[in-house]
Write a protein that binds this DNA or RNA. Structure first.
Lengths: 212, 212
DNA sequence: CCTACCGATCGGTAGG
DNA sequence: CCTACCGATCGGTAGG
């Protein structure tokens, strides 16, 4: 109130996100976050409750957004009722997020162990729900004869983790756009579940799917 | 010398491996390692040089073993000259290791950032060499017409990271053996690169590869 | 293998 | 927003 502050809670969070992603939660000191913002450590506590709360906010918000994206993607009218198109859309949106929100993804996936309960369990629950959603699509595709895969659970893990890995190697100044990366991963997902059809015209990865 | 010691450097390393895998390098205190061994913290230093050296040993040895496994797998006489069989063998051995050496894999992949130079760079170099080896196989398969994939680099990252993820979900008492998991992942890898042939009789994943 | 102990640094509070 | 400061804990050493 009585002091001119350039700093907002969102700014603290952005800096924390960068540092947690680079060095991990336990590897990051509050003093480093303060230094990047050019303030003293105690001043951080005008904007956040604690280091742990900072992590909890980041991880919960990100996990929730990931799930919301998934739910929205498979409900889009142009894919509804078309399982291969739904899987493609779900993978594209997930892969795209991991290319465009790398820091969030890295923190969610390497610092979840540093979360106190009950937040850690909430995050695991969101993740399980998402994974189950992917697996349900794979099961549906198997029943309809679109997909041919022996281990649906392994396929869903493999697909999701392939996308998570994007956050580890993607570079904004690299040769591939986030969209091209997302599109390739959607195609990989369809190949992985043994889809041999084509999704041309659906905005998904096109013709060369699963065959020569 | 003058004291009966139940403790060996290898025992310290095993306990450190468990704790680093569970809580991360920075999240693990030397006092916790000592407690699990039922000794006092300072006694650890009769067996190790420092916490950092403990991590370096674990990560370097594991990374080297991973690469040696890869090199041996693609040189086996029954796969030599057969690119799809080589890729299958390389993926099987990598996937299998991640199911049977979960702690090592988790530490290598989440605590590499905690390593001091020059060890961190050495580890990255080993990893790059391995990834290049996989990519070379994919390129060879494209040239021979066995594989059909637009983005070989994305495919090699995807294949490797799918295997790394095994360390995160595999359970010894789960429904799937390490061998079955490895076999499935080899099949996923061949599908991912657009292989439509069959590897039957090669000890790899069998008939149902990439087609109905 | 132990006790005794060190300097450094941690997250966070008091109080303005 | 700051200075001053806290108790706790860190990795590690001395010395036996």
């Amino acid at each position: 109130m009585s002091n001119r502050s350039n700093i907002t809670p969102a700014a603290v969070r952005t800096v924390a996100l960068q540092l947690f992603a680079e060095k991990g939660y336990h590897g990051t000191a509050m003093s480093e976050i303060a230094a990047r913002l050019e303030i003293r450590t105690p001043s951080l506590y005008n904007h956040i409750e604690s280091k742990q709360a900072l992590l909890a906010d980041i991880v919960l918000d990100t996990s929730q957004a990931v799930y919301d994206d998934f739910a929205a993607a498979i409900r889009r009218p142009e894919v509804e009722g078309n399982t291969p198109a739904q899987l493609s859309a779900a993978v594209q949106v997930y892969a795209h997020r991991h290319a465009t929100h790398r820091h969030e993804a890295l923190v969610v996936n390497s610092d979840v162990a540093a979360l106190d309960e009950p937040v850690r369990s909430q995050v695991f629950e969101l993740r399980r729900t998402h994974e189950r959603g992917i697996r349900d699509l794979i099961d549906a595709g198997r029943k309809s004869g679109d997909f041919h895969v022996d281990q649906p659970a392994l396929a869903s893990f493999g697909i999701l983790e392939m996308c998570v890995a994007i956050a580890r190697w993607f570079r904004d100044d690299g040769p591939l756009s986030a969209e091209a990366t997302a599109s390739s991963h959607a195609e990989f997902a369809l190949r992985l579940v043994g889809y041999t059809g084509s999704l041309t015209g659906l905005g998904g990865p096109n013709d060369e799917v699963g065959n020569v």
